[in-house]
Amino acid sequence: MTMEHFAALTGAQAETAPRKAKNPLPGFGLSIGYTLTYLGILVLVPLSTIVFKTAAMPWREFWATISASRAIAAYGLSFVGALSAGAINCIFGTLLAWVLVRYRFLGRKLLDALIDLPFAVPTAVAGIALTAVWGPHGPIGEPLNNMGVQVAYARLGVLVAMVFVGLPFVVRTVQPVLDGLSADVEEAAATLGAGRVRTFFAVILPHMAPALFTGFALSFARALGEYGSIVFISGNMPGRTEITPLLIMTKLEQFDYRGATALAVVMLLASFAVLFMVNSIQWKRKSHSKSFATVPRVRSFLKG
């Protein structure tokens, strides 16, 4: 039957308005109503204050605030720190995911559970604990200090805290992809004469590259915004070990709300750009990978 035929037949019925399609499941009005009200009050309205505050600010003042040398130094530390932490986490995160998926050894399950520790431990606790470990009198900080390497109250300390908070993101995004990689692909590579190293770089790495990048970006975004664990270990010296969120905090404590807002806008744009990239990669992955379903769980840990 053609479309015209259909249209002609229903034409007789078209005199009265069609019934609206109705989902037989109950509660749509109530649930969407609560959801929208909640999101409106809790997210949209508060976020819009940033827009209003920024709009009310003269451009010259805005620019002066975000381009002050102290701010530039803070961006630099946040950015380079988050980037380095992301890279370190990619290496160790992949290693951990590999070991957890491929090998069976005593304590594997415990190790697996421990990976989530940085998600679960409050950032303030992480901050003081890391300071105690890496500080001048700590079990690792002391020997390093004797060798002339200062970690706590220096830029290295910022890096240590950023590695700590970002580690689970890489492990938890790479793990399911490695788990889902079927052995026959590797075996095929092996029968074709490829060695283990060659197989890893030619077969396994390309397969997990999107997940690795997602993990990197999530770890990076988390490190960029991190506050609690860093403020204890960094020493907070303006221009040297002061991260951007701390600078915002300082301005808030001085009741310089406009200055804080201006810096917040810079940070928000940076993190939204990162999340946007992650999402576009995930959409691509979704089309050909079943392991996508595990990503939301990882993401729900973000900042946790």
Binding site: Q13, T16, P18, A21, P24
Partner: peptide, 23 residues
């Protein structure tokens, strides 16, 4: 069954029009 709403027409059980009855 009432799991879909028809745009036009009616469903009768016996002499009762149940088109608008919920599932």
């Amino acid at each position: 069954a009432g799991l879909e709403t028809p745009e036009y027409g009616n469903v009768l059980f016996g002499d009762t029009d149940v088109t608008e009855h919920p599932v």
